[in-house]
Simulated scan of single mutants.
Amino acid sequence: MPQSPEEHTGARVARTRKARGLTQQGLAMRANVSKSLLSKVECGQRPASPALVAACARALSVTTSELLGQPYTEELRRDRLDTVIQPIRASMENWDISLEWQVPARPLALIRADMQKVLVQRRQAEYLPMAVELPHLIDECVQVLHSTNGDEQRQAHECLAWAFRCVFTLAWSFGYVDLATVALSRLAWAAPLADEPGLAAMYGYLRAQTTLSSGRYDLGMHVVDSTLRDLEGQDSRRAQGLAAMAGVLHLRAAVIAGRTGDADAVDARVSEARELARRTGETSAYGVGWGPTNVGVHAVAIACDLDEYGRAVALADDVRFPKGWDRSRAGHHWLDLGRAHVWTGDADEALRCLQRARRTAPQQTRYHPSVRETVVALRSRERARSGALSEYAQWIGL
């Protein structure tokens, strides 16, 4: 498809600004960003950083998804991923009411085994099979928790909490913010009943993630620190699980600090996370893919958020993925590194990073808004038509 001026986030910011009757200076003042930066973003000369998008969305009273162009409806329809969202929405309607089923639920052990498969699919960014499985797993879990008691009922709540966590990932990745919000509220209900402090910490971790989109960084930092305090002195059924959750919470705080430009707070939080990772090593407790590698890839991402693209490239030299590491996190790393290479002027390496992201986690890459920004930036800089870049742009729907 031919490129249009509406394909990058800056163009959508400009269109929304004009619809609100605001000048660039007016929006810059409301969003607390410089007019010069806003001007460059609107015409595609500078990247639309996540912090700037959140600030503009808040100032314009729209969602960040709207400025990012999500959900990418036509691409979702082409991949038939749109057809799996409505069944998930329908399954999320019931989480607390006992219904009479003609067919009894399967034994809990079988449900838990299938839930573990879905959790693996989430970590590997295999979104379609995960989405297909979730509706009936949610229904079964609800049926079991209303027909059992004791530890079996607790386990049903635990499975249900994991299902809601997976729904959040799907909805957030595809830009269905309303569905992600519902999933988060359901997780807040199920986690305490599962009697797993790590799941309660997962709720805090994801809630802080939503504040990145709204630009409420003060609230996000409060959520992280409150969750960390709640973890102190807790016991878990998963060895190293709580240390892993504490680690990812510190990384979440580092990301929030990066969005506010607080480099000192970033360094402090990353240091805390690095020390925890040194003690735990690599682990997948609570499905977070925690360890020194996760700290490394977050350091690269945060450097990008701080517009320190040269530093991001340098930090990436020390990142080595262990065998079998999470494809979702690895794919995201290649997207971050591709963005860094664009703005350091290495277009060839940027495209190579995007291609690695595609090979690593294709569904995640295709629907991630940052890849579109990177491709648009590459196309605006190419001196001669690149077949590889054109094919990639077509693949993501540009």
Rank of each mutant, 00 (worst) to 15 (best):
L160G: 07
S91E: 13
L67M: 09
V223G: 00
A190R: 01
A277C: 06
G331T: 09
L128G: 09
V376E: 07
S173N: 06
Q153M: 15
R216A: 10
P47L: 04
Q234K: 15
S147G: 07
R274N: 06
R77Y: 08
A314F: 03
T64W: 07
V295F: 07
R278C: 11
E74S: 15
E282N: 10
G261V: 15
H8K: 00
R385E: 14
A55G: 00
V295W: 03
R112T: 14
D305Q: 10
P47D: 05
Q394M: 09
L354S: 11
A254W: 02
R385M: 08
S49R: 11
L52E: 06
H146Q: 13
P369L: 04
Q234F: 08
Q124A: 09
W395M: 04
G338R: 05
G281C: 05
A330H: 03
M1Q: 11
R359L: 06
L389R: 04
G291C: 02
A183Q: 10
A350P: 09
T148E: 15
D225H: 15
F174I: 07
K35W: 01
A180E: 08
H157D: 11
A191I: 11
P2A: 14
T83F: 00
R229N: 02
M1N: 07
R12G: 07
A19T: 07
I88M: 06
W290S: 13
R15E: 13
G289Y: 05
E133F: 02
M92A: 07
E196L: 13
K18R: 14
K40F: 00
D262R: 11
G44S: 09
A347G: 05
L378P: 02
T73S: 14
A125Y: 14
R252S: 10
R77H: 14
Q24G: 15
Q364E: 10
R216C: 04
A48K: 03
L22F: 04
L231A: 08
S34E: 10
T211Q: 04
Q363T: 14
L137A: 02
D96Y: 05
A200M: 15
R269V: 00
S185I: 01
G310E: 11
C56Q: 08
A90W: 09
L184G: 02
R207W: 01
G10H: 01
S34W: 05
L27K: 03
L60F: 03
Y72M: 05
A301I: 00
P292K: 09
A191R: 02
A28Q: 05
L389Q: 05
V223W: 00
L193D: 11
G204L: 13
L276D: 09
K323F: 00
E42M: 01
R320A: 13
A14W: 00
